[in-house]
Amino acid sequence: MALSSSPARGSSFLPTPPGDAAPGPAGQVVVITGASSGIGHATALAFARQGARLVLAARNPDTLAPVAMACRDAGAAAALGVPTDVTDARAVERLADTALRHHGRIDVWVNSVGVGAVGRFDQTPLAAHRRVVEANLLGHLHGAHVALRHFRTRGQGTLINLISAGGWLPSPYAAAYTASKFGLRGLSEALRAEVSDLPHVHVCDVAPTFVDSPGLSHGANYTGRNLQPRIPLLDPRAVADAVVALAQPGGAKRAVTWLGRGAGPGRVAHALAPQGVGALMRWVTDRALRSARPVPAPSDGNLFAPSRGTSIDGGMRRANHRGLARVAALDVLGLALGVWAGRQR
């Protein structure tokens, strides 16, 4: 089933033949997975304002429909919703086939699906761990597989993976999420190497720190506590703008785009003192959980059933995030330098 605001087949709309170059941002054909909420929804609207032709994917057709309509209202040349579970490789194949059937080509493929399960590793159901890895890693792999086959045939195209800083820094009580992001980072590195002989085919990563999206409230929670991070959070629209910038024809195609003030210092700190940074993150998380209010029961969240909402924001940003981010970054970097200096002595 497809939910479409694009012209029907047989109308005056004629898809561009495969191999033809996109005439610019307004002519781009963009596939976005995880498009129904959070970063994916914000990214869809950002491309819509450029006049792109959008093919939007998520598990729930009821959430795709209003997003597709909003994209049309925002200026998209076309907006098509295709219910897709990215853990199903055949479903992702059908998603790509639908995009090609309607538009004749794909210029940009954005892998934006992301789920999580928070809880101590051995107290989190194994099925939840598996589902996180299937969605975050295999879901991206399935998308990359169909996208790069098409890009190699055309000799052009841009694949964008949403990784997060979790691909470089460990997240205690989110072991499967960390494993999936570290794996996704390796996947992107390998794919960049494979297409290095194709000057117009690009594999780009966007790695934000914590984002104020509904992902945390939609995700699985086995901690017994309400999850309300007291840390600086990014606006999902800033992440969306970074994705759109990477997709611009003729624009810079950075291998990794970092977002968030703590990303750089955090990577430096982890390189200098990985155990110290891990222990600090565990301490911060433990402290936050102790002060959080209890919740009545564990929740699988949206791991096995799609979310119902389409909101972009998680509603947790605070006015003093900028100052907090600077202090947090300096604290992490200072700890790492102190541990490193002590070891040198």
Rank of each mutant, 00 (worst) to 15 (best):
L246S: 11
V92M: 14
G166F: 01
L184G: 10
V203C: 04
L198S: 10
V92N: 13
G10C: 14
P229R: 04
L126M: 13
R59I: 08
H142L: 02
F151T: 08
W258C: 10
R90E: 09
P17T: 09
R90I: 04
P25Y: 08
H103W: 09
G143S: 08
V206Q: 10
I160V: 13
S299P: 07
A193H: 00
L138A: 11
D97L: 07
D313A: 11
V195F: 05
G219I: 07
A57W: 13
S217D: 15
G215S: 06
T84Q: 09
V132C: 06
R72S: 15
V108D: 15
R261M: 10
A238G: 08
A117L: 02
G309C: 10
P23H: 10
R230D: 15
A2D: 13
R90C: 01
P294H: 06
A8H: 14
L138R: 01
A42F: 00
T158V: 06
S5E: 10
P18D: 14
T209A: 00
T257M: 06
A325K: 02
A220I: 01
L191G: 03
R49I: 00
F13K: 05
A52D: 11
N221F: 00
L54D: 09
Q228P: 02
A52L: 10
D300E: 04
L324K: 12
H321D: 15
A179Q: 12
V277K: 14
A305W: 01
L126W: 07
A245I: 03
G250Y: 10
Q123E: 15
L162D: 00
F182S: 03
P214F: 04
S6T: 14
V86A: 07
T257E: 00
R326Y: 00
G260W: 00
G34E: 07
F47Y: 02
A242R: 02
P25G: 03
A325N: 05
L14C: 05
V203W: 00
G266T: 08
H145C: 06
T158G: 03
A175E: 05
G186D: 08
G157R: 00
P214Q: 06
P23C: 12
L330D: 14
A165Q: 08
R345K: 12
A220C: 00
V146E: 15
P23L: 13
G309H: 09
M69D: 15
Y222T: 11
R343P: 06
A271R: 05
D212M: 02
L216D: 01
R261F: 07
L3P: 08
T84Y: 01
D241L: 05
V295C: 14
T178D: 12
S213P: 02
Y222A: 04
G139W: 05
S307R: 10
